[in-house]
């Protein structure tokens, strides 16, 4: 029991601060690093960036089935969009999470009904499973996969699996809660320093190619 308390205090205390430091600090660092590369070596990129064509490109790629390739892979498309949608929104609007923030800082915002949050959690887990199975079964994906790809699927699924187990009091609640918090922290800290950084970079790669296709190539990029 004491061990649980010590662990609980660790993951909800110092590790939280470390997580925010690494996640936010790391993200800022990665984006600054990218811009410093642009400024020092590829300044020309700015002259090709176009707001209109950036938005045109983004608008097509953030809407399911709005691009040729999304339409070519309907199952992947549905899973990708559902997975990312739930992955980002559910933790931000989960009642339990908002309550913790409220208790700590006195601010709060709208929350999701627990039933919906529970479904969204299952969607994230199903999505992770889908990506994993896809990695094993599709030849073109298996060929590209490296060990870290499988680890990343595990890292992203872990907070949702443990959160789900804790919420439903399956297995040891306290252990699950601690593992849930810890795995969430690991996931956030991994974002800037793994291929999760597509969360930070996607907008830049997308808008750059969108601008090149729109204003130089006068062609669609979807």
């Amino acid at each position: 029991m004491n061990n649980f308390n010590t662990l609980y205090n660790l993951v909800t205390g110092p590790l939280v601060w470390l997580t925010f430091l690494v996640f936010i600090g790391g993200s800022v660092y990665k984006i600054r690093q990218l811009f410093s590369l642009v400024n020092n070596k590829e300044k020309f990129i700015y002259s090709y960036m176009s707001l209109k064509f950036s938005l045109r490109s983004l608008a097509h790629w953030v809407v399911p089935f709005a691009t040729v390739n999304w339409r070519k892979h309907p199952v992947m498309t549905v899973m990708t969009f559902l997975f990312h949608f739930c992955l980002v929104l559910m933790p931000l609007f989960l009642t339990a999470h908002v309550t913790i923030i409220h208790e700590a800082w006195g601010i709060r915002w709208v929350t999701l009904p627990d039933g919906i949050a529970d479904t969204m959690t299952m969607i994230v887990i199903a999505g992770a499973l889908f990506f994993l199975i896809r990695r094993f079964t599709l030849r073109e994906v298996r060929y590209l996969s490296v060990a870290s790809d499988y680890v990343l699927v595990a890292i992203v699924a872990a907070p949702f699996v443990t959160g789900f187990l804790a919420y439903h009091h399956i297995l040891n609640y306290q252990l699950m809660l601690i593992l849930h918090i810890l795995s969430g922290e690991i996931m956030l800290m991994a974002i800037p320093f793994t291929r999760f950084s597509h969360m930070l970079y996607a907008i830049f790669t997308r808008t750059y190619i969108g601008s090149e296709f729109g204003s130089v190539r006068h062609a669609r990029d979807w």
């Binding site: 390739n69 892979h73 992947m76 060929y143 590209l144 996969s145 790809d149 291929r195 790669t205």
Partner: peptide
């Protein structure tokens, strides 16, 4: 850098 680090090996 962005291309190397962003590719998630999805095969799409």
């Amino acid at each position: 850098k962005a291309y190397v680090e962003t590719c998630v090996h999805c095969g799409l």
